[in-house]
């Protein structure tokens, strides 16, 4: 049996998480659950980006005894998607906190977390 490689596994995991996130955003009526759906969507995208930057049989982009400076180009994975994902995680955290603050405010206004009770902007 052919071995499934690491990057394929992580890519599938990322895509599944992303689809669960979209499904949660579209079907859930509870505001907190929608925020969780968004967070899952976010995480799925991060995993997809890291798995695309992976290079077969290589190690983390940190130069030490295991990866000498002169052979770094043959031994490390792509550092750019990892830096990008680090940025994206922090921004995702900020957005999630912001959404939770809005949810808290909405709850204080109407004492309800059901999206159906907020129909002022519905058309």
């Amino acid at each position: 049996m052919e071995k499934i490689s690491l990057e394929i596994v992580t890519l599938i995991t990322g895509i599944i998480l992303l689809l669960i996130g979209i499904w949660g955003l579209l079907t859930q009526k509870n505001l907190i659950k929608m925020v969780i759906g968004f967070a899952l969507f976010d995480t799925g995208i991060h995993i997809i980006m890291v798995s695309i930057g992976y290079v077969k049989n290589r190690t983390a982009p940190i130069l030490d005894q295991a990866v000498k400076t002169n052979e770094a180009a043959e031994k490390i994975v792509d550092p750019v998607p990892q830096a990008l994902v680090l940025t994206a995680i922090v921004i995702g955290l900020g957005i999630t906190a912001l959404m939770l603050a809005y949810v808290l405010k909405m709850y204080q206004k109407k004492k309800s977390l059901e999206i159906n009770h907020y129909n002022e902007l519905k058309w």
Partner: peptide
């Protein structure tokens, strides 16, 4: 279409080769 990379692309290769001379950080990220 995804089959996994086998080598670094140009930009990442440049970072891998010259970051320790240009920046001096062991952690390339």
């Amino acid at each position: 279409d995804f089959s996994g990379n086998t080598e670094l692309n140009g930009l990442a290769g440049h970072y891998a080769e010259s970051a320790h001379k240009e920046v001096g950080a062991a952690n390339l990220v």
